[in-house]
């Protein structure tokens, strides 16, 4: 059956990422239980064996489809120019920094910086005044609820220490 020329071929390269991750992880998992007692192996070999079979079948299906012209090994369904245009890459970098900085800087300050930077990136640096206000308000509410009221063990930094000292000294 001829393919509709207007139809975009499936980007099978992107679709193969999860199966390849699954194969790599399963093989790594097997390597950790190779010399273990049977109780550690039985279900892993059962599930892992099925998973490897399914992934192999999927890779085979992709190869057949590419050969038949129904798809390509492209990745544009996963990574494309939209990721830069929408600010997704900027948001991802901000998220990684949020995780890295929350321990040294504390919950409130990091949340403020993260909200400010990510909202600014996503809005293409428009309405910066409004964004600063929202980021400050939300992070202060977060501090009041999670740290002041519930006393959770969120990471504490300069802001939390200062506020604690201020509240203790009236």
């Amino acid at each position: 059956m001829a393919q509709d020329p207007s139809e975009k071929p499936r980007q099978l390269g992107g679709e193969m990422v999860i199966p390849i991750l699954a194969i790599v992880f399963t093989l790594y998992y097997f390597s950790t239980i190779w010399n273990s007692p049977w109780t550690a192996q039985v279900s892993a070999f059962l599930i892992g064996g099925i998973l490897l079979g399914l992934c192999s079948l999927f890779v085979l299906r992709c190869v057949v489809w590419v050969n038949a012209g129904k798809g390509s090994f492209g990745f544009s369904n996963l990574v494309n120019m939209d990721d830069i245009r929408t600010g997704r890459i900027g948001l991802f970098i901000a998220t990684v920094l949020f995780c890295v900085l929350i321990e040294p800087l504390g919950f409130t300050l990091t949340t403020f910086l993260f909200l400010l930077s990510s909202m600014a990136v996503l809005s293409k640096f428009r309405n910066l005044g409004l964004i600063t206000g929202i980021a400050a308000l939300i992070s202060l509410i977060g501090w009041a609820v999670f740290i002041l009221a519930f006393d959770t063990r969120f990471p504490r930094g300069w802001f939390e220490m200062t506020m604690e000292a201020m509240l203790q000294n009236g």
Binding site: P37, A40, A44, G48, L51
Partner: peptide, 22 residues
Amino acid sequence: FFGLMIGAIGTDVVYATPRGTF
């Protein structure tokens, strides 16, 4: 099945052998 495999990370319940924990 990928989820099931991820769910199998950790020690086994009988001999506490660590599995797939990186």
